[in-house]
Design a protein around this nucleic acid. Structure first.
Lengths: 335, 335
DNA sequence: AGGCAATTTGTTATCGATAACAAATTGCGA
DNA sequence: TCGCAATTTGTTATCGATAACAAATTGCCT
């Protein structure tokens, strides 16, 4: 059987007239060699088109690999897209490679992905969400590798966490809506499988209602992924049952925009007839005639913070367990 | 220095009273061992909580790793989100892990990512787009690993390709718009850096115009990423310069929806006053009062086909160099 | 029961780097 | 110019699996 046959350290060593250990030192760029040696080695490496072999390097080293795992519910959501984008580019800048997985809110799928990832001896793991199977938690412990949970901060982190409280997002918005004088308030959500985060916002919103002695007047939750369409239909349904509602809080902006489309089509005036609030600070909302009342989520910043925090920890420096990323209620003009 | 100290094949071998080669055979699940041996080995592996070490396995093998690289322009686009999602879940199902990168249409960034990826001796590479630097092309050749280019089929593939012709999308839509009796037709695009694909659609559209002896009446191209907002503003700009337009073709649905928002706000009737066509079959379009005229792109299917094709090739079976994924013009009701 | 093929199991070398320690060289002050 | 510390370079063992081949065992037919 012919073995793989690309240029290796030994080839460079022979060509440069040094030992391969010296070549290794030069390639890793630390110290322990003269300038003359470095130049000679680099020149030969370049000439021979040396391609580092991280498989062999990781294997030979006591260190972990430079792979970092990232598991999110799905990549088709605008917010997770931004988080993924940001994490990937920041980790890349810091010398790490990103291996992805998605679990669509199914904790068992996250576990299966994690088992596969673990075989690569990753340097760190980033998980979006806080629902994990017992096996996942045990495996993470055994791996003894930094873990950052992204997104929700309402529970204790396994190791580290970066995100914000979804409950507080709902709470703050609930208070705002009540304060604007709305009295017949409904919630329109979507939940395919189990989405703890959307539910946490809903609970926060309900808590605000309770504070104001305003029980939630109606609730409509689609058994589907949040989308423009579920927002459209959810609005139709909730209004059919409760025509007197004067405000609606949505699972996210996408659904809120879907709801607005429904209202527009039926001549119901936003704000005058019914107040609309979303969540997520979705860019699409910029096309609405009036700025949408929503909560802005700094997804890019969140990813950057998470990537940098992980790397800081990997370098042995101290980091806080929990980093809160500030969300911002955008008053807008729809409530 | 203490070495990494998790359970290894040798530990299982000792516990089960066999050689580690036998354990290796059982763990990989082929043949060459008795049922009794297999049960004994698996029981010990389970008891000792064996975690396979793919770093060592890949290193010891003549094979490549089971890592597959995926590089897209960005993860924040709905279509690439779907492609990413589909590729990762299908590759995962087939036993491969996905390492991601993004290049934001900068060919040099793709090259840098590829160099890092190459150090992992990936089993295959998936690239969205067809613009590559000379170094990228040379590196891909030297790696002698399957490469699939996704998305655009207007040029010759480096190795394999899965996608469709953006030129044809534009051409088909152009013919349709002309056939509907539109005569003063404009194009609204967006181009941050260099986006060959959007440009290919534009050129296809212009070719259709030429066929119909209808030179494109106006063109507005934002130096920005396509978005609702650029669609909104682009529409405002193009109509300010050319009030007589009776149809607009947009870079994508997101921009078309932004354009529609502008038209709605200014009392310009869709279809009656001006025809609107998009591209991408974006789910968001489902909220429009009338179904958007657009081209549907089966992003999920494209990812699935690409993943399966790569794996088929990796298993040594023959595959076609080029796989065309069917796009579909949705007549809708906006032109 | 004997003999041969098929199946099961074991042995040794190897992948390409890094770790740990040892040896050689250099630089500089006394 | 000598000697010692600092720097540079080399040597050997090792990481945990798989490849290739060799040996032992089993099963079946005559």
């Amino acid at each position: 059987m012919t073995r793989k046959t690309s240029t290796k350290l030994e080839d460079i060593a022979r060509a440069a007239g040094v030992s391969k250990m010296t070549v290794s030192r030069v390639m890793r760029g630390g110290t322990g060699f003269s300038d003359a040696t470095r130049d000679k080695v680099l020149a030969e490496a370049d000439r021979l088109q040396y391609l580092p072999n991280r498989i062999a390097a990781t294997f030979g080293s006591t260190e972990t690999s430079t792979l970092v795992g990232l598991c999110v519910p799905r990549f088709t959501s605008s917010l997770f897209g931004h988080v993924t984008e940001s994490i990937q580019s920041n980790l890349s800048r810091l010398g790490y490679q990103t291996v992805i997985g998605s679990h669509d809110q199914i904790a068992k799928d996250e576990e299966l992905w994690l088992k596969t990832l673990a075989a690569w001896r990753p340097a760190g793991i980033l998980l979006a969400g806080t629902r994990h199977t017992p096996d996942t938690i045990e495996l993470l412990k055994n791996l003894s590798v930094p873990v950052i949970e992204l997104w929700d901060l309402t529970t204790d982190p396994l190791d580290m966490a970066v995100g914000f409280s979804h409950f507080d997002c709902g709470l703050t918005m609930g208070r705002y809506v009540a304060q604007q004088g709305r009295r017949q308030i409904g919630y329109v959500g979507a939940m395919a499988g189990i989405d703890t985060m959307g539910r946490a916002r809903q609970h926060g919103f309900e808590a605000a209602m309770a504070e104001a002695d305003l029980p939630l007047a109606a609730k409509e939750i689609a058994h589907d992924h949040p989308s423009f369409y579920t927002g459209f239909v959810g609005t139709e349904n909730i209004l059919a049952r409760n025509p007197g509602l004067d405000a609606l809080y949505y699972h996210d902006d996408e659904m809120a925009i879907g709801g607005i489309a429904y209202l527009n089509r039926h001549g119901i005036r936003i704000k005058d007839d019914i107040g609309i609030a979303g969540w997520g600070g979705m860019e699409a909302a910029s096309i609405l005639p009036e700025r949408l009342t929503t909560t802005d989520i700094p997804a890019g910043a969140l990813g950057k913070v998470a990537a940098e925090k992980l790397v800081t920890r990997l370098r042995g420096d101290a980091v806080d367990d929990v980093t809160v990323v500030a969300t911002r209620l955008i008053p807008g003009n729809t409530v």
